[in-house]
Nucleic acid binder design. Structure first.
Lengths: 142, 142
DNA sequence: TGCCACACGTTATAGCATAACGCAATTGAT
DNA sequence: ATCAATTGCGTTATGCTATAACGTGTGGCA
């Protein structure tokens, strides 16, 4: 089995961005992150985007396409799928509350399976799959 | 059965935008549409965005979140789901070829069902679900 | 030592989307 | 018929999101 990317050494900027996302406990746009990090010397969007690119590559951060925003991966060490920040073959899905902005990250192997079957039947080779459910979380729907 | 929005009368701008998307046979950004319609008197992005908002509301156009672009709905009259541009309860999914930009629109009721179950189990009330598979279509993967 | 890969910093620019204003046409109830 | 509400339209200005292109510095390594 190919070695997934596990606990890569983060650079200073990557660490700052990752920590900012973890503290936020919710999605942030790149420019919001930039503003939070001005006190730490950040001056330009590229500093944020470059860090986000790497963190996304490492699987430590996810991009929410429907929000143009980013969240820290909700996984903790070795929680599932065989390792730290390794999502294996599984697609990550998100439920995004449009009222309180809470984001629930989850996996659904059945959904993966069905979409995989569809792709196979069409000869389509997936590289990245986005699943995002916008709506109201339990609290906000009440 | 509840009446879905069927063949609403389109305004001039809406018709121009919809026709442009249909001619394109592929996704276009709002600004690309604007450029195509300058000869028809379009001058500003809002003319395009306002038409797109309505067309999306009517179900005649879909937004591809991972592309910031728009496509005409691939459905033809009464093709499925009980009527013109009526997607019923079903979520629309897209496979997007990153090589040739072809977009395949499809439905997967099993996937809908599983995501619906997940939402129900969490008390989450979905309003809109995005499913987009980026990858290579059969031709481009060969 | 020279080369390479990579992170970083900066300036500028490109691409996507909406706010806020006013006007015109339509509808529909009184 | 007329007034009010709604809707579409056009324009200007602005804001948000993302990347191009340049150069610098550093660490590994043949």
């Amino acid at each position: 089995m190919n070695a997934p990317i596990v606990n890569p050494a983060l650079t200073k900027n990557q660490t700052l961005v990752f920590d900012a996302l973890n503290r936020a406990e919710g999605p942030m746009s790149a420019y919001t992150i930039l503003d939070k990090l001005r006190d730490h010397g950040f001056r330009a969007p590229l500093q944020v985007y470059r860090a986000l690119d790497k963190l996304t590559e490492f699987g430590m951060v996810h991009r929410l396409e429907s929000l143009n925003a980013f969240v820290a991966c909700a996984h903790r060490e070795s929680e599932c799928c065989g390792g730290s920040h390794n999502h294996g073959q599984g697609t990550v899905a998100f439920a995004i509350c449009e009222s309180c902005n809470q984001v629930i990250e989850f996996h659904d192997h059945e959904v993966d399976h069905h979409l995989g079957d569809w792709a196979k039947s069409k000869g389509f080779k997936p590289s990245k799959t986005t699943i995002e459910i916008r709506g109201l979380c339990e609290k906000c729907a009440a």
